[in-house]
Amino acid sequence: MIEAKNISFKYGGNSKFKVDDLSLTVEEGMMSCLIGKNGCGKTTVLKLLYGMLTPASGAVYVDGKKLCGKTLAEYHENVAFVGDNNWCDKDRTLEHNVELLSFLYPSFDREYFDKLLKKAGIGDKDDKTVGSFSTGEAVKAEISFALARRPKLVIMDEPLANLDPVYKTDILELLQDAVSENNMGILLSTHLLDEIEDITDKIYIMEKGKITKSGDRFELLGDDEGTKLRDIAKEKDSSG
């Protein structure tokens, strides 16, 4: 379980906090969703949770222990991040990349990876350079690799952005299976509330660096507030 407790962060030179006294929890076996408008700080929160950034105040705890530089490498073996453009070498084939990177993850499951690729419809692409993949295929490859590492938790930064409905469906199926079959915890950020509301267990609403609302999806989406949330999402969707 990852727990962010009162974390704040601002980028160098800025007077305003991008993330301001924020707390949230990501648990195994659950799909959590972070929703908010562009620029509200969602990506920053995810990077803080992953350890790419260090909070100015507050801390991230992993199974009760504070995350720090010394424990980062071990932490990253159990937690994956999706949404980083540099996760692989785009001039090499997927096969080469997996061969290179699997050394770093003893728990990498090659069979499961091949199965995921097949399920995602890119099973025949492992001898192609990753740079030649379409956006959707690249996202699927990244997610497949992340899931095949058998992490306890996966943090995803807008994995569904700019994808057509077919790709979105494939990806959401992969994520659902990972949660239900492998007890993985997933935290993803998105503004596509409609697509994820049926599969997410917990929702965090973010605004101007703060969590304004959080709770079970049934609590949040089943009333007038839920309608408001959908409206926010639609507004974002049409502007984004």
Binding site: A73, E74, Y75, H76, F81, N86, W87, L104
Partner: peptide
């Protein structure tokens, strides 16, 4: 430079 960028995304001891 690419090696460092790549390793930045992964658990590299």
């Amino acid at each position: 430079g690419r090696f460092e960028i790549l390793m930045h995304s992964h658990s590299f001891d």
